[in-house]
Design a protein around this nucleic acid. Structure first.
Length: 261
DNA sequence: ATGGTAGCGCTGCTA
């Protein structure tokens, strides 16, 4: 099974690129973030015509997550279990069962600046994700949490650690919140296959950062050990960050071998 | 160079 994740930064703008990419990357499951659209605007038919079922969770201008699958899409849950109807809910989490795995598409809050209320909300949100795993998932089972974590797990995941001192995405508290997820029983799938530094998934649009190789690796596929043991290949598709109207993120793909006898 | 670009949507917010 080929599983992928891509922050598309507006699915309305990026739909032609996503359609093109589906046809050459052929993922079985694709998790999308930052669709920036309401459920009513989601292009269900465009994806169906390419052979994908889809589930979307979006409120409009910001956020928005989706799961596309051509290996089944069952038991869709939008948001965290027990999320209250009356609270201000941002569309950052959706789960479905695809090809025998429980897959989630996540868009972790950015945090804006260390110590801000948005930063505290980011840490709280990550705690909520940890609680979701504890309450609803089995670390011995087949679980994949895919998306834009807005955290660079290690200093080798940023272009110049000195430039990020005191910044979000690299703080101890954020990395500890991520470590709480891996401690539960998840593995950074990309790192199972690649150990080099400076392999990025996001580059700021500004100042020509992509062409200057100034990026961060913040898009992750976290899988339970039973799935990690089946990883045969992983790639950040930098080609998809080039060309006309690219997202500021590249897609991440991971191949999992079929279950043996 | 406390800059720069992109998206949403129409003014400034978010990233």
């Amino acid at each position: 099974m080929r599983i992928a994740t891509w922050n598309v930064n507006s699915l309305k703008v990026r739909l032609p690129r996503v359609e093109e990419w589906l046809q050459y990357a052929h993922p079985d499951v694709l998790c999308l973030q930052e669709t920036k659209m309401a459920d009513g605007a989601f292009p269900t038919m465009a994806f169906a015509s390419l052979g994908y079922e889809a589930a979307h969770h979006g409120n409009g201008r910001w956020n928005g997550v989706a799961i596309l699958s051509r290996v089944g899409l069952e038991d869709v849950v939008a948001g965290f279990e027990g999320e209250q109807e009356d609270e201000i809910v941002e569309s950052r989490f959706i789960s479905a069962t695809c090809g025998g795995a429980r897959v989630s598409s996540v868009y972790v809050p950015n945090g804006r600046s260390v110590g801000s209320e948005h930063y505290e909300a980011k840490l709280e949100w990550l705690g909520r994700l940890r609680e979701h795993l504890q309450a609803s998932c089995d670390p011995q089972g087949r679980v994949a949490i895919c998306g834009d974590f807005n955290i660079a797990p290690e200093d080798r995941d940023v272009y110049d650690p000195a430039k990020f001192v005191g910044a979000t995405h690299v703080s101890d508290a954020e990395r500890k919140a991520l470590a709480a997820l891996t401690d539960w029983g998840l593995v950074d799938a990309f790192r199972e296959r690649h150990q080099e530094d400076k392999l990025f998934s996001w580059w700021d649009y500004r100042a020509g950062d992509f062409h200057e190789h100034r990026g961060m690796r913040i898009d992750l596929i976290l899988v339970t050990r039973v799935l990690a043991d089946r990883i045969t290949w992983a790639l950040i598709d930098r080609f998809a960050r080039k060309g006309k109207l690219p997202s500021d993120h590249a897609p991440l793909l991971v191949d999992l071998a079929d279950e043996g006898p």
